[in-house]
Design a protein around this nucleic acid. Structure first.
Lengths: 206, 206
DNA sequence: AATAGACTACCGTAAAGGGGTGATTTTTAC
DNA sequence: GTAAAAATCACCCCTTTACGGTAGTCTATT
């Protein structure tokens, strides 16, 4: 018998999971929570084998919750639940001890497979997650490393300041700002301000 | 007895809705679909009083589906389902005939209230939607109207082209391109390229 | 006939962009 | 522990582009 705990701020999703998991004879739902705090409180007195955990929680971030639960109760397997568009979170959840990662548009057999696998100590990642994860790590490697100063200047450029204004604000020479700006262009492989801002937004520097 | 049809590509949400609505004695679930096409097919032979419709569907956009259903079957009340971060969609769904708008983190009594209200011909919008809607319409009024030429030039600027390059591409004088650029600055209330690109992305012009 | 918006165009100054060079310090790597 | 690499700073020249102000024509709307 596998006991499953659910953390999700969407009552509908919780209802769906409970309703569906209760039909399974070797699975029992030990409880559910709509907030991270409620989840932490639950595990102070009770326990479960597997947690289905939403990443977007109203109070504490799912990544932080995952970390906390794993450090207190390493034996509990955590499956992250998320919607499509959050490539960067996948990495973070895995780093913080999640054993599986399911998309919310996963169908019921997939959820069962995930629960059974992580309960046995294995990992489960939905097919699409693999793609997103790969894409996000590749994206990461393509996304260049900017120095502290470069990030600082990039932000000021994005705020509409000219090199002269930036130089005054940072107490450095205009020429230096200009050099940093040119280095930003080189690193981000762009040729002017318009493309710089676009690339910066695409790479989440802003 | 109110018959409800569900369209959502997340099996969990469908499961949750079905499980919860079946408990209500004056509500029956006439069916559900994971895609817009499956929904359209259903209504060719069967019907329902209320449709709970997700906005993010894999095949056809929820807004388009809403429009189609409303034009074919004006008597069916549609409640849009969505997650928080989609202010601009609310307006479009209402324009296309939706009678209600629920956030997916709505709790069960709220869903019931929405179904009963729209079935009686009234409208229902969750509290938070009101806020988002208001914010988005205010945002809309702030979001300026760009002419065809201006949009064209904005796109080319965002592609990193200089005024000279744009002028050659559009067979007009550099000065003209420059004027359009300045008008873009005025309309979007910015003073240079960096801010222009930022505002353009914020206002979904790119 | 008047007002407003779109599209066109020009001028002068300020800023950006492309190139190269070089010094100092801090990080990283072997 | 030292050498290589990267970061931060700074300067020069020169060309191109951007920005601010001004202004004409045309068309649609009132």
């Amino acid at each position: 018998m596998i006991s499953v705990f659910i953390v999700d701020d969407h009552p509908l999703v919780v209802e769906g999971l409970v309703s569906f998991l209760q039909k399974e004879k070797n699975i029992t739902v030990s409880g559910y929570a709509n907030t991270a705090q409620a989840c932490i409180d639950f595990f102070k007195t009770k326990t479960a084998n597997v947690i289905l955990m939403d990443i977007n929680l109203p109070d504490i971030n799912g990544i932080e919750l995952c970390k906390q639960i794993k450090s207190s109760y390493p034996g509990i397997a955590i499956i992250a639940l998320s919607t499509l568009n959050q490539g960067s979170y996948i990495t973070k959840m895995i780093e913080n001890g999640a054993s599986g990662y399911l998309l919310k548009n996963a169908d019921t057999p997939e959820i069962l497979e995930a629960i059974h696998k992580v309960e046995k100590g294995e990992t489960y990642f939905s097919f699409e997650v693999g793609k997103i994860y790969k894409a996000s790590t590749e994206h990461q490697s393509h996304s260049p490393i900017l120095s502290k100063r470069e990030k600082e200047i990039l932000l000021l450029i994005a705020d509409g300041l000219t090199n002269t204004q930036i130089s005054k604000q940072l107490f450095i020479s205009v020429d230096t700002v200009d050099t940093h700006r040119k280095n930003l262009y080189t690193k981000l492989k762009v040729t002017n301000t318009a493309l710089l801002i676009r690339k910066a937004i695409e790479n989440n520097f802003l």
